[in-house]
Design a protein around this nucleic acid. Sequence first.
RNA 1: UCCUCGGUAGCUCAAUAGGUAGAGCGGGUGGCUGUUAACCACUAGGUUGGGGGUUCGAGUCCCUCCCGGGGAGCCA
Length: 423
Amino acid sequence: MKIVGKKLEIEIKGWVYKKRSSGKIRFLIIRDGTGILQGTIYSPKKDNPLFKKFDELTQESSLIIRGLVREEKRAPGGYELNINDINIIQIAEEYPITPKEHGIPFLMEHRHLWLRSQKQNAILQIRTELIKAIRDFFDGRGFRNMDTPILTPSACEGTTTLFETEYFGQKAYLSQSGQLYNEAAIAAFGKVYCFGPTFRAEKSKTRKHLIEFWMVEPEVAFALLDDIIKLGEDLIIYIIERILDKNKKELDILERDTKVLERIKKPFPHITYEKAIAKLNEKGSKIKWGDDLGSPEETLISEIFDSPVCLTHFPAKIKAFYMQPDEERPDLVLGVDILAPEGYGELIGGGQRISDLALLEKRLKEYNLPRKAFEWYLDLRKYGSVPHSGFGLGVERVLSWICKIKHIRETIPFPRLLHKIYP
RNA sequence: UCCUCGGUAGCUCAAUAGGUAGAGCGGGUGGCUGUUAACCACUAGGUUGGGGGUUCGAGUCCCUCCCGGGGAGCCA
């Protein structure tokens, strides 16, 4: 809702957000999908026909109103509409979501209506800007967009649980990553990214996990670990700057302290896995070299800094089969996890990929993966293999952190959660 | 999957020790000086998640199932 000039007659098509009345004056707050505006009807006569229409209106009734806009300090937003005409489209039935407090189970059951509330609207407004920023970032740097398949014949990484489906009598799985396909595409296009939904059938039930989420995955030929870390840092900075610029109003509705975001500068602090383990032990954690960092450990590390942190050089055995080993320390791999501040978890996971055919073949065996399914992937190491790197960034993780939302379920219009697929 | 907490009116919650199920909001009706989660009065609204058990008597105790919140592992 945009208002220009001091006095002008406008028409608003929307829904009743709230209403109040008091003797000779009625207040009607309406929303049109872009914002809210307060309208008033004043009349000394009780039988004013507009009063009658106003009285019929219920919360979320749809309507078209016309009136004169003017500045009004007492109104929310600083502007107010003198209503001249109300055209009722539909009188809404008793609306379940009242202006009072509601519990999470109730709101989740009514997610289709919850989307209309101001806070949810603000989060999803930022989401669309975030997605646009991601595309602009990669498009502006000469990346080609590859739409990798959602139906896949086998596991990309082989470790996590996949959703199984049927594909003309053959088993198929919903994609958990487009990375392997991107690795094929870079030999054709140099720099690519895929951006789409990702499915993980893990039985995870935390504020950081969705069963279905959106991920952007860039992959770059000839890029080494350091190159891809820089790309990740640039991307995160770009996203933050864009949202601070375009979504002031929404961040304000969410009461997000933007100073924390404004302070973030690149390069982010870097810390190796080994140093992280030492730091954690100092802080009293019982984690041992070779253990993967759990959620409490990730939070501890992220709390040391007030910026995202790049964690690098992990033990090979806790990472995926395709990770490139460090030349000097073959027990470590050239991987990177970028952890969000404030305990929001992993924003980015990626690294340098194995480019040597023999080593990749060895790793497939060690990880017990069926060679047949990976023949095409091995081919990439036969015909002009190059060092290359890439990462995946989870849209909802970044959004939860930027908005400082308690739970990731509010960062996607219709979240898919463990055992929950309604609505 | 495991640990933990919970399920009472449309919603958010209360109900001493096992003893007649209640409030606020929302709905309806009426009132009201420009209200900001407006306010005031009146009013309707219940198989206390399902099943079983103990008891003279169960929202309350026991068993069991279902559903949900929070956390863990795994990950982005």
